[in-house]
Structures are given as C-alpha cells and as structure tokens.
C-alpha cells in the first residue's frame, strides 16, 4: 500500500498506509491525523482538508479543479502548493508522498 507522510504544523510526522483509490484526506482521517477536519467527508463542501503538497510531488498529484480552486481561495494561508486533500486520489505513483498541514483549517 502506498505510504503517505503527513507533517503537522508543529513538525510532528504521521506515516500512514493509504489504500489505492481512496483519497489523501480519507487516509488521514481514518488514522486520526490531527489537523485535517474534513467535516463534509470528501464532498468538496467544507474546505477543511487543506494541505501543502511537497513541491517535488506537485506534478504527480495533478491539477486543482476549478471547484477546488474556488474553495481554496477562501482558505487561510494558501500557497501555490495548496490542495484540498479530498481531491487527491491515492495511486501507486503517490507512494512516498509528503504533505504538510496548515496551522488551522479555518
């Protein structure tokens, strides 16, 4: 199973086995990684699963959809590598992915 590393804003790392086909958000929530709220469960309705994708992974995680872009527009501390983790599907290619979590989801 691909491994994904989530790094909290305080530097704490969580390495999680992420099933292929699920999302980067789901893998975090199911392993209780703090800092990803994902209140809506992945419906792209709440913008509380914001992550920063490690720059070297940006091509593999793909582009933001326009819906995602609009949602992120209203999130705090958005950077060029910001994504909503509910919109990134886990694939074999993403084994080793590193994402950082913002200080707050609101």
């Amino acid at each position: 199973m691909p491994k994904i590393t989530y790094i909290e804003s305080n530097g704490k790392e969580h390495v999680v086995d992420a099933p292929i086909g699920q999302t980067v958000m789901e893998a975090a929530v199911k392993h209780a990684v703090p800092g990803i709220d994902a209140d809506c469960g992945g419906a792209c309705a709440c913008a509380t699963c914001h992550v920063y994708v490690d720059p070297e992974w940006l091509t593999k995680t793909g582009e933001q959809s326009s819906m995602e872009q609009s949602m992120l527009d209203f999130a705090n501390d958005v950077e060029d590598n910001s994504r909503l983790s509910c919109q990134i599907k886990v694939s074999a290619e993403l084994d080793g992915l590193v994402v950082r979590l913002p200080k707050s989801q609101h």
């Binding site: 792209c44 913008a47 819906m67 609009s70 949602m71 527009d73 209203f74």
Partner: peptide, 12 residues
C-alpha cells in the same frame, strides 16, 4: 449551485 466562491463568501 456550482458556485463555491459565493457559498464560502456568504458563509463567511
């Protein structure tokens, strides 16, 4: 409807 910015903006 298919307007996430309006949704989030109004919510705020």
């Amino acid at each position: 409807v298919n307007r996430p910015a309006e949704y989030l903006g109004a919510k705020m």
